[in-house]
Amino acid sequence: MQEIFWNSIAEYNAATWYWQIAITAVAAALALVLWFRPSKRAKIAAKVFMVLLSVWTAFVYYLGFCSARDYSSALAIFWCLVAASWVYDLATDFSSFRKSGKYGILGLCMLVLPLFFPVVSIARGLEFPQIATPVLPSAVALYMLGMLMTFNSKINFFAFILILHWAVIAVSKVEIFDIPEDLLLAAACVPAAVIFLTRALKSAGQDTKPKIFRS
């Protein structure tokens, strides 16, 4: 099972490395544009990119290269759900993708973390193409988490809990498939969960105050 897992990653990397470089470059460019020159177009572009990234993970990675694994279709459908959450966000213009003045540095650190996936793989003696890259599902989830954390004025909470679910899957993969790189996502999810869940708890609590007591 572990061998099938790493072989599928190797096949994926060998066949799509140039695409992965392009995707990483676009991801970095979008984050920089949103940080330095935020605009409505940049915000829409970022959301469209999130949709495409999720669709890529579902169709190219899981259905294209991981078909030898058991239940890869379940994970492909899960990533379609992540894509749907961004499409819904795009349609309703929900998340603002604006900086709030808080946690920006923490968000930037999370945005950089996907680049450490191949570094960790090489550090533990793996060789290309059998290494973790920034365009594997956990690294993609980490990039999305970084975007949510950096531009956290108003976030897509549905996408966040889907990423949280993926972090749980990632932690179990560390033990089952021997991929410690996924711990980066799990580690990043801890502060994100504390921040976003506490904020959600507080903001949801405001609605519970009865109207007659509101000033």
Partner: peptide, 15 residues
């Protein structure tokens, strides 16, 4: 559908 679909991801882990 959404809850069971997310839970079905556990099947891929082989637990």
């Amino acid at each position: 559908f959404v809850a069971s679909l997310c839970a079905s991801s556990a099947l891929s882990l082989g637990i």
